[in-house]
Simulated scan of single mutants.
Amino acid sequence: MNAKVVDRLAMTSRRIESIAFAWSGLPDYAARCIRAVIDRHPGRVKVIGTRPVVPIAGMERSLGQAVHWVDGRDANADWNRLGMRPPDLFFQGGYHRAAFNSLGLRCRSDGGKVVLQTDSNWQGTLRQHLVDPIRHRAFLRRHFDGVFVPGTSGTIYAQRMGYRSSTVFEGLYGADPTLFNGGPPLHSRPKRFLFVGRLVQVKCVVALAQAFVHFAADRSDWSLQICGAGPLRDQLPHHPLIEVSDFLQPAQLADVFRNARCLVLPSLSEPWGLVAHEAVLSGCALALSQVVGAAADLATKSNSILFRPGDVNAIADALHSIASWDTIRWQEAESMSRSVATKFGPEPFANAVAQFIDKLNSEM
């Protein structure tokens, strides 16, 4: 056997010690989740990111180290240019960033393993039945040794795309319970609905505001707080019970959740919905459209109402239903929300990463 073949076999059989994560628009919650891996993993952990649209104050402080910032469009991104060796295990944030694809290919060519991080969720659409499986089988599956997904709907999607169930792990997303927590008992909080997100068409925020106006004609004891920025802000109706504010830094947002009763997320499309996890960590109830991916993991009969997406009347009916809850129901909702919230966050994220390492090491 020649030396080149021996070297190649040595590379493909090396155990996982060094890890790297690549995250698009690196958010604070991702930094906090990766920090849990850094604190537990004995080897090197590096983080590559494209910059978030809304800058997060102290994000690198949450991570505990500097981020290697890249241009996501750079199809020639290279580990050497980043000042590091290719890792033994690379968690690649999606397959739509040219820079991440380049780093993933270079990692595999060096003998490393690559895990796809994706928040695609199963909705049973015609495209998901016919087009997506072909794309994954023909172009994507051979590039990845595993798939890291947020929750149940992501697992279903990955398995439908042909990835082996033994290589798919949940826990990709999750807010930090040391930040989102506490608050007064849910039944004693102000009667306030809360929306957090971009003010864009896919979030259906204008329909939510319109539904609230109809609702408030009968229930003027409730208010709606909208936190976010985007092109649809000027289309929101002006109403004395609707408060609109820009995006808030995480610590400020945590205080807002602690003083709200129910998060409303009326999205037309929502792969998972981290904001839903922030809400249940804070004890809030949930009113979610049926397409929100996190509903499968966080919404139960005790703490939530689900409604048809894009339907103003359906949203208004959901608001009326939640507003009718009595004290016992609010107590049940808070208890259930805090219970399901424990399934996600930095520790479950780090546990999943450890599972990937154990699984891939066992195959070497």
Results as ranks from 00 to 15, higher is better:
residue 50 T to Q: 08
residue 37 V to M: 01
residue 263 L to F: 03
residue 279 A to F: 01
residue 4 K to H: 12
residue 171 G to W: 00
residue 205 V to N: 02
residue 198 R to N: 10
residue 179 L to Y: 06
residue 338 R to T: 12
residue 30 A to M: 14
residue 339 S to A: 06
residue 90 F to T: 00
residue 123 Q to V: 15
residue 133 P to Q: 01
residue 140 L to M: 13
residue 330 W to D: 15
residue 328 I to A: 15
residue 199 L to N: 10
residue 134 I to L: 15
residue 341 A to K: 04
residue 248 L to D: 00
residue 214 H to W: 11
residue 363 E to T: 11
residue 73 R to S: 15
residue 256 V to L: 09
residue 162 G to T: 00
residue 115 V to F: 04
residue 22 A to W: 02
residue 31 A to F: 06
residue 335 S to N: 14
residue 313 N to A: 13
residue 319 L to I: 02
residue 239 H to A: 01
residue 124 G to S: 05
residue 48 I to C: 09
residue 156 I to E: 15
residue 189 R to P: 05
residue 346 P to S: 04
residue 124 G to T: 07
residue 14 R to Y: 09
residue 200 V to I: 12
residue 265 L to K: 02
residue 173 Y to G: 00
residue 208 L to H: 11
residue 339 S to T: 09
residue 299 A to N: 03
residue 260 A to G: 13
residue 238 H to D: 09
residue 90 F to K: 05
residue 259 N to E: 10
residue 295 A to P: 12
residue 350 A to S: 14
residue 353 V to M: 04
residue 9 L to A: 13
residue 340 V to H: 08
residue 214 H to D: 14
residue 74 D to K: 04
residue 203 K to P: 04
residue 303 N to E: 13
residue 55 P to T: 14
residue 21 F to S: 04
residue 345 G to H: 10
residue 64 G to P: 07
residue 288 L to T: 11
residue 69 W to S: 15
residue 326 D to A: 00
residue 129 H to N: 13
residue 43 G to K: 09
residue 244 V to A: 04
residue 58 G to H: 09
residue 224 L to A: 07
residue 265 L to W: 01
residue 43 G to L: 07
residue 337 S to Q: 08
residue 315 I to R: 08
residue 260 A to Y: 05
residue 128 Q to M: 11
residue 326 D to E: 06
residue 93 G to M: 08
residue 283 G to P: 06
residue 167 T to L: 10
residue 97 R to F: 13
residue 167 T to G: 06
residue 107 C to T: 15
residue 39 D to R: 15
residue 292 V to P: 09
residue 4 K to I: 14
residue 249 Q to A: 09
residue 99 A to E: 10
residue 230 G to S: 05
residue 171 G to R: 00
residue 252 Q to W: 03
residue 296 A to P: 12
residue 115 V to S: 04
residue 332 E to N: 08
